[in-house]
Simulated assay, not measured.
Amino acid sequence: MKRIMITPAWSFSDEAGNQIAPALFLLLEAVHRHGKLTRAAEDVGISYRHAWNLLKRWGEFFGIALVELERGRGARLSPLGEKLLWAEQRVNARLGPQLESLGSELNLAIEQQLKGMQPVLRLHASHGFAVELLPKHLRGLRLDLQYCSPREALAALNRGACDLAGFHLPRGEVGKAVSRNYRDLLKRRSHRAIGFISRRQGLMVALGNPRGISGVKALADRTVRFINRQEASGTRALFDSLLAEADISASHIHGYETEEYTHSAVAAYVAAGMADAGFGVEAAAQRFGLDFVPLAMEDYLFICHQRSLAEPNLIAILALLRDTLFQKAVEGLPGYSPHRCGVIMHVDAL
């Protein structure tokens, strides 16, 4: 099946019009991961000579080497090489979900034009690594996936703009506080909840945790730089509840007002050395080579209308959630578990 994929791209040009080749970013990431230019070139699928020439060319372009090679010690990114790599990763992390949502809309419109109306499941959900797995495993049913805040997703369900709304609730007393943000949008008689996954949320810190950050109280130290999630996100609601539980004022946290829009974007921000800590899921921390301080467990749930449970598109998604292969894919995500995956519940049980 032909599908549109929208990916962010950016260029760095000089007066002569020379522009950075996209392959350079792949090579920098591979050098960072392997620490050897030979392994990096092999990983990217180019010859050692081509990799060397690519680094030489763009080192001359900037006037500073991008990779430092030492006999017997392999290769490592120079400070400029690190900045370029983290800048590219932050662009992908920040724009990826929005572009994925746009791509979903365009693919659906094109397929309906070419093939006529096909079964479609409209899912509005808070962004997450497990949600990203759904389009890869769903067969025989088109998924119109739109990323938005939990309140936006539930509001869309109530006005008939989607079939499923995805949001997450922390466990314990903190969860009771967060749930107040959504109670006015949940209808106990007509709504039903579908279990999806559980995941760990916590603080993402540099490898080795050099600042010794062990919890939210450490963030009140004004020398600790923090990167936050956007105000409407469920993760921000969880973080604010943890601050309230610890009796910490947001005004005491350096960087509280600085926001990113995905877990990966927060992780990239910390990995780039622009913050000492950020709040998000364990999977994002591991993806960017960070350490993780777990602080809360939460359940990610889907909400639908009870009457929709007998419709073919809901039957199909329930079958996927209960499928062993899909649940194993969820278990492969650090900090994730297919908790009550595919189990239908009354909203009063949340």
Rank of each mutant, 00 (worst) to 15 (best):
R122N: 12
A40D: 07
M345D: 04
Q89S: 12
N209D: 11
L314H: 07
M297F: 08
E298Y: 02
G166K: 00
D184V: 09
A220Y: 12
Y300G: 15
A268V: 11
A125K: 02
L309M: 11
D43N: 08
E231I: 00
H346R: 14
A250S: 15
A275P: 07
Q306V: 00
R73L: 12
I6H: 06
A296R: 03
D323G: 05
H252R: 15
H124N: 10
Q113Y: 13
V44R: 07
G280M: 02
S13M: 01
G289Q: 11
S337Y: 04
L66P: 01
L207Q: 14
V281P: 03
R171Y: 02
G45M: 06
G166T: 03
L37F: 08
L55N: 03
T262P: 03
Q19K: 10
I248A: 13
A329P: 07
W10Y: 15
N181G: 00
H137M: 13
D144G: 13
L242T: 02
L169N: 04
A329N: 11
A285M: 00
L309H: 09
R33G: 05
E245C: 07
L320H: 07
Y256D: 09
I344A: 06
F167Y: 14
Y256C: 06
G103E: 12
Y336H: 14
R71I: 04
R57H: 11
N181Q: 10
F302I: 05
M5K: 15
R189Q: 13
Q118N: 11
G278V: 00
L95W: 08
R229T: 03
R76Q: 10
C341R: 04
M345H: 12
I46D: 04
L157P: 01
F226W: 10
I213E: 09
S47R: 07
A161K: 14
R236F: 12
P135S: 09
T235H: 05
W10C: 09
